[in-house]
Design a protein around this nucleic acid. Sequence first.
DNA 1: GGGGCCCTGTCGCCCGCGCGACACTATATA
DNA 2: TATATAGTGTCGCGCGGGCGACAGGGCCCC
Lengths: 227, 227
Amino acid sequence: MATSSAAALWYFESVNLYHILCPHKVKKMGDKHEFIRYKKDDFVYVPEDTASNIYLIVDGRIKIGHYLDDGKEVVSSILTTGEIFGELALAGEDTRRDFAQAMCDAVICPLTIEELKALMFENKELSFKILKLIGLRLMKLERKLELLVFKDARTRVIEFLKDTATWKGQRVGFETMIPTKLTHKDIAALTGTSRQTVTTILNELKEQNLINFDRKKILIRDINNLR
Amino acid sequence: MATSSAAALWYFESVNLYHILCPHKVKKMGDKHEFIRYKKDDFVYVPEDTASNIYLIVDGRIKIGHYLDDGKEVVSSILTTGEIFGELALAGEDTRRDFAQAMCDAVICPLTIEELKALMFENKELSFKILKLIGLRLMKLERKLELLVFKDARTRVIEFLKDTATWKGQRVGFETMIPTKLTHKDIAALTGTSRQTVTTILNELKEQNLINFDRKKILIRDINNLR
DNA sequence: GGGGCCCTGTCGCCCGCGCGACACTATATA
DNA sequence: TATATAGTGTCGCGCGGGCGACAGGGCCCC
């Protein structure tokens, strides 16, 4: 898959927005530097909230998603330390249409749009990084769309595993270990399949000795031979 | 659908980027102002091209899409006069992963990234408009994803009709007329369904007197009662 | 340590819709 | 006006996978 690896490379380049942003903030705003703690399952924001901040994750895992008319939850992404969310506020979103929820106890650093815009005014590099960040989200979403719409459930789960391995996995020899407490239900919501299907597929893959997993981690035997 | 109408409002605000951009360009660059003509089916760019321009559509219709591994074509969007494409170049995309193709004879105004960045440096408003434009694309894509993954074919086609009516339709009394030469195949590619299904659904809707159509236009009787 | 709750695993039903096939009709080409 | 070509309409088959149901296993909390 030429496309996926290209997208991956591009990604890593833009992660360090966090490092650009936080020092700046410290320098400019001194003790206004603020952290907020959330307990497991707390919401950072919910639909209809006014969108006035973007957030940096200092520690913990945050789930971004929204609810369908029938109340079913759709998960767009699950983010961890160093990642950014709520960036659409910057792009003109006035009230949130998605929610952000802590999946475990978490520490978040909020930044008002005003603050950020001020920073962007005097830091061209930052402006383009932000542009890039949002562009990246767009490309990831395009890829996800293609996956969800045109591939079968098995492929979707496999691609999800590969992606996750690339972002979050730890390489040990040939094997990649993904430490994760994602339940099958979570994976189902992320891949647009049903819980049962995920269970079945995962077990098939384990059967074929392509992966192994328990409740704490997923182990991919050889990421290049997973299909 | 609260979501869709909110998204719609937001959209209209950002369309006039064209008006901001073109006067500027004329002012700053004088006779470097350039138009390129494309014949029907010509490609503006194809995957692997280096991404060095963004484009304004002066006249005609441009199809944006890409090809799956099996060669099948996926259409992401179809754009017309006044709209912008190729904007990911600005967000750091170095080589294109999608294609842009003229659906009829078309006139396009290209703008190099360098030119545009220069303009953005000295025009904050433009910078934020661009950010907004890309953010908008992101939101539209999120909506599309949700539609494609969680709604059945009928709903997808109906929502597509509504969306198109909102962007491109002409209101005449209660009715909305969408002048379009989209074939059923086009609509299928845009809604992620099959050609046959589109035909059937469209005829069902005609039967129920909710819409009418021929090869040149689609007429929606009452956009608020289409479901 | 016991009761409740959530996660995992498996089976079978059923339905949405993609897809091939084929006939018919409008539009472009000669 | 004849002929090729692309778009439309309809039917029936088949399969992927959602979903309900239920059983077993872990884990947390009182």
